[in-house]
Design a protein around this nucleic acid. Structure first.
Lengths: 193, 193
DNA sequence: GTCTATAAATTGATAGAC
DNA sequence: GTCTATCAATTTATAGAC
């Protein structure tokens, strides 16, 4: 029989983060109250403050955690530039389709981060963009890519790949490998020499 | 000498929309109070309700107005598919770089629209995407574009072009025509046969 | 058309019982 | 560790004077 009171430290913490992620993605950070998060978890609002000092820290943890996971999961830089770009494309699509809410709030709620937290997250994003740009530069030097501006190209490719999340629905007419093939076709041609 | 009271119907209306656009873009719809908007305009909160029935109507008006302007400003469908695609690319970049806040809230604040308003704005966006897809289909039928899926390609190209707004700053190292050339280079190659 | 004043509800966060 | 109760501040929106 379910208790209505008692100690649940091990499970409550992650459930609070899950609930906050889901609600922030759906309604936006500013529109979500601590009471809503607590209700989603099944505790009272006061209990949340055993796990987070305040609402802002909850958002910071979600965004920073997402970017650190993204950087840690990147494919190894092995193979020629074409192979590396294909691996990056496949990875980027798969990683973000697997975490639609985290990806969504990582773009949408940046402005709700206080300055030092914003700077920290931006530094991580910058590192990720740099990873792609290095692939593009290596390809240009090898003569397989033709890109007048590798920095802008990196922005453009990431923006294009991010767009998958705006239309893809699991169980739709396209499987993940089909989506990866479709985007790889355009990525490959866009950078081609 | 400036009055602190009195009638200013002609100028107050547009100024409220301007202030709301700026503040919504900066802090997010949910995070902006009617008092903040009023303060930005230089009136008291109560005065806003002479111009909008409520806060939601202000957001609807901004998003719907932006999409209608976008559709109305599209380039004429003249020329061959390659020329039409170039015109679309140049137009899309120029239009959105000219309205960064409106573009921003049109993507970010969709979720804060009540259902019927959301549907109305989505219908307009869909019409815009359809315009690009028709260009892509015409090019594929003419044999100048090679695209396995014109719908996905339209999404991908729009997402790529939208990305300009995340990094472009007026007065930066690149002029508008330079940006248009850089993106056209990638768009052209991405769809090429 | 704008003001002041206020109603009614909701917010983030804290205190103290259990 | 969670609860109930509550504070102090802020919110949208309205009423009525000018």
């Amino acid at each position: 029989m379910a208790r209505t009171q008692g100690s649940h430290a091990d499970i409550t913490g992650p459930r609070i983060r899950d609930a906050a992620l889901r609600l922030f993605a759906k309604h936006g950070y500013a529109a979500v109250s601590m009471r809503q998060i607590a209700a989603e978890v099944g505790v009272q609002a006061g209990a949340l403050y055993n796990y987070t000092p305040d609402k802002q820290a909850l958002l910071v943890s979600l965004l920073q955690g997402h970017m650190e996971e993204l950087l840690a999961a990147r494919p190894d830089p092995s193979g020629d530039p074409m192979q590396r770009l294909r691996a990056f494309t496949d990875f980027h699509i798969a990683f973000h389709l697997d975490r639609p809410e985290a990806m969504f709030i990582s773009y949408m709620e940046l402005r709700n981060l206080e300055k030092p937290h914003f700077d920290a997250v931006e530094r991580l994003r910058r590192a990720y963009e740099d990873g792609l740009e290095q692939i593009l530069r290596a390809g240009r030097e090898a003569g397989v890519f033709a890109l007048p501006d590798t920095r802008i190209a990196a922005f453009a490719l990431i923006a294009m790949l991010n767009g998958v999340n705006t239309w893809y629905r699991a169980g739709g007419r396209l499987s993940l490998p089909q989506v990866q093939d479709l985007y790889w076709d355009m990525v490959r041609k866009a950078v081609a020499a």
